Simulated scan of single mutants.
Amino acid sequence: MNNYVSYQLQDFIPFSADVYFRLLERINETWWPLHLLGLALGATALVLALKKRERLVWLLIAPVWAFVAVVFFMQYYAQLNWAGHYVGYAFLAQAILLLLLALAGFSRSKVSAANTSAVANSRPAAVAIGLGIALTGLLALPLMATLSGGGWWQAQVFGIHADPTAISTLGLALMLLRGWRLWLVACIPMLWLLLSGLTLWVLQATEAWLLFAVLAAALVGIAVLCRYPEKKA
C-alpha cells in the first residue's frame, strides 16, 4: 500500500517537456500547410455557430476529430505514451457522435413556447462564454507557443492538435447545445483537457493554466444553461 501512496503525478508521464514539444514540432513540420485548412474550418464553424447552423457545424467538425484521432494520437502521441491509442479511440467516438448529431438534426430551437423566455435569458451568457472558449482554441492557444518562447513550430493549431480542437469544440457546444446533448458532446473534450492540463502542468508548460481556465469557464457556462432545463414542445 505504501508503494502506491508514494507515486506522484509525474511518475505517470513517461516523457519530458523537450520530448513532448519536439513531437509537436515534428507534427507541424510534416503536416504544414494543412494548418491553414484547419484554421479555415474552425473559423467557418464558428461563423456557422453564430448563425445557429448546427448541423453544418457538426458536419465540419466531425472529420477534424477523426483526423486528430488517427494522426495526432495513433501516429504520434502513442510513440510517447502507450495510452495514446486508447485516447485516439475516444476521439474517434467523438467524431462519430458529432456526425450522428448532425444527421439527427438536433436543434436548440426544439423547445416549447413556454420555455422561450428561459432560453432568451440563458443563451446570451452561454454564447458569450462559448465564443470566448472557441476563440481561445483558434487563436490564443497557438499564440501562446510564441509568447512562451517555443516558436511557431511548437504552436498547437485547431484541426491538427488535440488541445485546440477540444477547446474550440467545447466552445461550439456551449453556443449550440443544451441539456443532455451538451453534456454528451462536452464530456470527451473536457476529460481530455483535464488530462492534457495535468500533463502540461507536470511538464511546467504555461499552456496548462490556459487549459484549466477553459475548463473552469466551460463549467460556468454549463451551470448557466442548467438553470433552464430544456422542455419538449
Score class of each variant (00 low, 15 high):
90 A>I: 06
155 A>I: 02
171 G>C: 04
115 N>P: 00
173 A>I: 03
136 T>A: 08
170 L>P: 05
126 A>C: 04
194 L>H: 10
158 F>T: 07
166 A>K: 05
178 R>C: 07
133 I>W: 04
154 Q>I: 02
184 L>V: 02
100 L>Q: 13
107 S>R: 14
139 L>F: 15
133 I>V: 13
107 S>F: 00
93 A>Y: 04
191 L>A: 15
123 R>V: 00
162 A>C: 10
144 M>L: 15
119 V>H: 06
165 T>I: 02
167 I>D: 05
163 D>N: 11
122 S>C: 10
182 L>N: 02
149 G>Y: 08
155 A>W: 02
110 K>E: 11
160 I>Y: 12
165 T>A: 07
152 W>C: 03
188 I>K: 00
113 A>M: 10
155 A>Y: 01
165 T>K: 07
96 I>H: 03
124 P>H: 02
120 A>E: 13
93 A>H: 05
144 M>F: 12
180 W>Q: 14
198 L>K: 01
101 L>E: 12
94 Q>F: 02
141 L>S: 08
144 M>P: 02
104 A>S: 12
93 A>R: 01
98 L>P: 01
97 L>Y: 11
168 S>H: 00
163 D>A: 15
154 Q>D: 09
171 G>F: 09
198 L>S: 06
138 L>K: 00
111 V>C: 03
114 A>C: 06
158 F>A: 07
197 G>T: 07
